[in-house]
């Protein structure tokens, strides 16, 4: 089972995660170990990259209107910054004593911290992106709730004008998200829900039209037409709700989802 729930996060973190695990194992197996080479240059490169991430991260926080991101991201940035400091300290200690065990421990601690902090940061950013998609899904849910009160052709035209771009956006974003997921089952559920929504949308519009025509002509069967329309709207809402549920899952929740 994949550890990282999106392909982007996996591609960024996975190679280093493996190397850090290897570092820990090698350190344990080697016990006192060989003399460490001078790590000041690679540590300096990490520090520079961390400075840049902190800058970009702070800009992201400032420009975001997502309260959760604004709350969560600073601690992830602090973690990365502290870990970078650990690496610099380890590097300085190793320069004085290439066999220093505390320095090696600090090196491992720093490497792990960079990995975990970056992982938290990416997760935080990813969750914020997911919330944007969910916001669009909820807009569709709001429109679907309005379908029950549409009783003129003019309102139906306006309803369609409002719903269509929103639905297209959801379709585009969920489709792109589905391709990003490493969890096959979650991805397949999103595809299935999206297909259902695409099938149901024109049928719902048709049922709304039938209802309006019956009411306008004062014909029989308006109750049945309303019932049919409501049923279709609720089927679509269920599919959107399921998409929201799956979008919020990460592989860490997979026990619950299955």
């Amino acid at each position: 089972m994949p550890v990282f729930h999106t392909k982007t996060i996996e591609s960024i973190l996975e190679p280093v995660a493996q190397q850090v695990s290897r570092l820990v194992i090698l350190h344990e197996e080697a016990e006192d170990g060989n003399a460490m080479p001078d790590l000041s240059r690679p540590v300096q490169a990490v520090s520079l990259a961390v400075t840049n991430l902190v800058k970009v991260g702070r800009e992201t926080i400032q420009n975001s209107d997502d309260d959760i991101l604004r709350l969560d991201m600073p601690s992830a940035l602090a973690r990365v910054e502290n870990s970078s400091q650990h690496l610099e300290e380890a590097s300085a200690m190793l320069k004085g004593d290439p066999f220093s065990t505390p320095a090696r421990k600090k090196l491992i601690e720093g490497s792990r911290g960079i990995l975990q902090g970056t992982s938290s940061l990416l997760l935080c950013f990813d969750e914020s992106e997911v919330r944007k998609i969910i916001r669009e899904c909820k807009r569709v849910l709001d429109y679907l709730a309005v379908s029950e009160v549409i009783d003129t052709m003019e309102d139906l035209v306006q309803f369609l004008k409002d719903l269509s771009p929103c639905l297209s956006k959801v379709s585009r974003e969920v489709s792109s998200r589905e391709k990003e997921l490493t969890h096959q089952v979650h991805s397949e559920i999103l595809v299935r829900c999206l297909e259902q929504v695409k099938i149901l949308a024109p049928i719902l519009i048709c049922s709304m039209k039938v209802f309006i025509l019956i009411v306008e002509q004062q014909g029989k069967g308006s109750d049945e037409a309303a019932e049919n329309r409501n049923y279709l709207a609720s089927r679509m809402s269920d599919e959107i709700q399921e998409m929201i549920r799956i979008l919020q899952l990460t592989t860490y929740d997979e026990d619950q989802s299955e």
Partner: peptide, 29 residues
């Protein structure tokens, strides 16, 4: 996204660092 690029740059730099540290240990095993 810039944040993804920045995170990727850190991971590349960390990868070089950890590889250098691993290389020294591997000689001993």
């Amino acid at each position: 996204e810039m944040i993804l690029e920045a995170a990727n740059a850190i991971m590349c730099a960390s990868s070089n660092l950890v590889r250098a540290a691993n290389a020294a240990q591997r000689e001993l095993i």
